[in-house]
Design a protein around this nucleic acid. Structure first.
Length: 567
RNA sequence: UGGGGCGUCGUCUAAUGGUAGGACAGCGGCCUUUGGAGCCGUGUGUGGAGGUUCGAAUCCUCCCGCCCCAGCCA
């Protein structure tokens, strides 16, 4: 089996791939491979889902099969069509193509109902009148067996009649359920007469009020897989206990095909959460601007932040796939993002916190133009012109009146290079009444046009800059992790505290007074760029023509920041 | 506690009875018109104890630890 070319390490394993290869070699399922990604449309997809999406689509691609996209919409109380739309867009964005194979579990409500009647007819399912609480009481515990429902031995004909009445809408929610008749003493809890159908009085996003009863996941999923001819039903580890039930249903219903379930671990990322419940709370309580807030681990959030889909694909491929639970360090994702953007993002000049520089020996009305390389990693990206004049802005962080050791940037009397422009010396500092530095008086070396002096003298640093009169104002949004804790859910549980206790108050910083080079005035939303020496940024959808807004996707690796952190 | 699953550097992952290797992170250095990128160097990591074997991360036994299951959610 050849590995995907996107796998940068080449040795990250994947036990699912091995298993499928075995099946194909042994001719199981007629040698076919059909997978499916089955999201519930009750929220947005997050990076954890990307693992499942890419695994399913990639396995189908590698083995010449196909992958279905199936919305698992069996709970109308939770699901909405706006989530369907968002999920479709996110899966497509990741580069996955389901072709004609877009399905909904709700497409199968009729055949599923038929399978339920079949089970009743075989004496393998019964209508139970116990309340929710009573069912729980009869359920037993981890160590004690359950007790049979008093309705367990109901005659087949009566079960059939009651179930048909359920379908006809004759009963109130909670009044009755359909249960499989399996084994109340099983050590596998999902086998203790699991509920197959319940009554729900909620309109469904696709079937409206057509159905008063809805199948449970455990019932609908294996049978939907069978209906679609799925060969490899890949799901997460917590469903391992459900596999006996999955197999039981396939065994006892007259299905056209026998799919098999294989479980793999969920992907966890440090400094964030993958729980839809937690993510929903962040949205509902206004801690973020929405499901697509650039701080969210959702695919929509990552996309808005500027993360390329290729980075997410490479990130997953490099991770490999074993049966062990995993929590991947955020640094690993950031690495994949930088790797991708380094090769693809055009470089631009942007000053986030402007400090005014006046070049005393440069004429008032003159403008020079210097050539700047668009992407040193990609010669084909060409060059552009940068205007240069007497008054410039540089980054406030790039000047220190009293520089410590290892600060190589500008200081009084010191010379640095302005990227692509010239050498610049700081002659004096101008302060306002409160003592704050408001301006630097500098001189340039006219012989150093382009950046090098004829005498070959060296400088300690190269700074980014923009020309004051030519630069365009912009807003820049800086992001840090949404949570300060490495594993906020675990920590909250351990310490008995709230989600909000672990939010990072510095997760968003908005800079309103930035200056960007003129070529960025009409940047198109979604454009990914590197601001030289600062990081990778992407134009936000809030950007309007002439008023650019940028999101910082990720910083550049920063040796100076690291030294400062170390103290 | 009954059942299911899993234990290899800080993190992720190779080695499928034969030299414990890679990536990320960290640390040190080289190079540099991005303190970017790139390059070089840097590790007593097989949960523990026994056993089998010429040889064990790998096979066996026991122990320890972690994750999941008691929704009319998926």
């Amino acid at each position: 089996m050849t590995r995907p070319s996107s796998d940068p390490t080449g040795d990250a394993g994947n036990f699912v791939r091995e298993r499928i290869a075995d099946d194909v070699a042994a001719g199981r399922h007629g040698g076919r491979v059909v997978t499916r990604f089955p999201p519930e449309p009750n929220g947005y997809l997050h990076i954890g889902h990307s693992r499942a999406i890419l695994l399913n689509f990639e396995m189908a691609r590698e083995f010449g099969g196909r992958c279905h996209l199936r919305f698992d919409d069996t709970n109308p109380a939770a699901e909405e069509s706006r989530f369907v739309e968002a999920i479709l867009a996110d899966v497509r964005w990741l580069g996955c193509d389901w072709g004609e194979h877009l399905y909904y579990t709700s497409d199968y409500f009729e055949p599923l109902y038929g399978y339920a009647e079949e089970l009743i007819g075989k004496g393998l399912a019964y209508v139970c009148d116990l309340s929710s609480e009573q069912i729980r009481e009869h359920q037993g515990t981890l160590t004690e067996p359950g007790r049979p429902s008093p309705f367990r031995e109901r005659p087949i004909a009566e079960n059939l009649e009651l179930f048909r009445n359920m379908r006809a809408g004759a009963y109130a929610p909670g009044a009755r359920v359909l249960r499989a008749k399996i084994d109340m003493a099983s050590s596998v809890l999902p086998m203790r007469d699991p509920i197959l159908y319940r009554i729900v009085a909620q309109p469904h996003h696709r079937t409206g009020d057509a159905w008063p009863i809805y199948p449970m996941y455990d019932f609908a999923h294996p049978l939907s897989d069978a209906i679609e001819g799925i060969t490899h039903s890949l799901c997460t580890l917590e469903f391992q206990d459900h596999r006996p039930l999955y197999d039981w249903l396939i065994e006892h219903c007259s299905v056209p095909h026998r799919p098999e379930q294989t479980e793999f671990p969920r992907l966890n990322l440090s400094h964030t959460v993958m729980s839809k419940r937690w993510l929903r709370r962040l949205v509902d309580e206004g801690h973020v601007s929405g499901w697509d807030d650039p701080r969210m681990p959702t695919l929509s959030g990552l996309r808005r932040r500027g993360v390329p889909a290729a980075a997410i694909r490479n990130f997953n491929a490099a991770l490999g796939l074993t049966r062990r639970n995993l929590t991947v360090e955020l640094a690993r994702l950031e690495h994949a993002i930088r790797e991708e953007l380094n090769r693809s993002a055009p470089r631009r000049m942007a000053v986030l916190r402007p400090l005014r520089v006046v070049i005393e020996n440069f004429p008032e009305d003159e403008t020079l133009e210097f050539d700047a390389v668009n992407n040193p990693e990609d010669p084909a990206a060409g060059t552009r012109k940068l205007p240069f004049s007497r008054v410039l802005y540089i980054e406030r962080d790039d000047f220190l009146e009293d520089p410590p050791k290892k600060f190589y940037r500008l200081a009084p009397g010191r010379e640095v290079r302005l990227r692509y422009a010239c050498l610049l010396r700081c002659e004096s500092v101008v302060k306002d009444a409160s003592g704050e530095i408001v301006e630097l008086r500098c001189t340039w070396d006219p012989e150093s046009r382009g950046g090098n002096a004829p005498d070959g003298r060296k400088v300690g640093a190269t700074l980014h800059w923009v020309s004051a009169v030519h630069a365009h104002p912009a807003e820049v949004r800086l992001y840090e992790t949404l949570f300060s804790a490495e594993d906020p859910m675990r920590q909250a549980a351990a310490e008995g505290r709230e989600q909000s206790d672990y939010l990072n108050p510095a997760s968003l910083t908005v800079l309103h007074d930035c200056r960007v080079e003129p070529s960025l005035a009409d940047v198109v939303a979604g454009t990914a760029l590197q601001f030289e020496r600062l990081g990778y940024f992407a134009a936000d959808p809030d950007t309007k023509p002439g008023t650019p807004i940028f999101n910082r996707t990720v910083t550049l690796r920063d040796e100076w920041a690291k030294l400062q952190r170390r103290g």
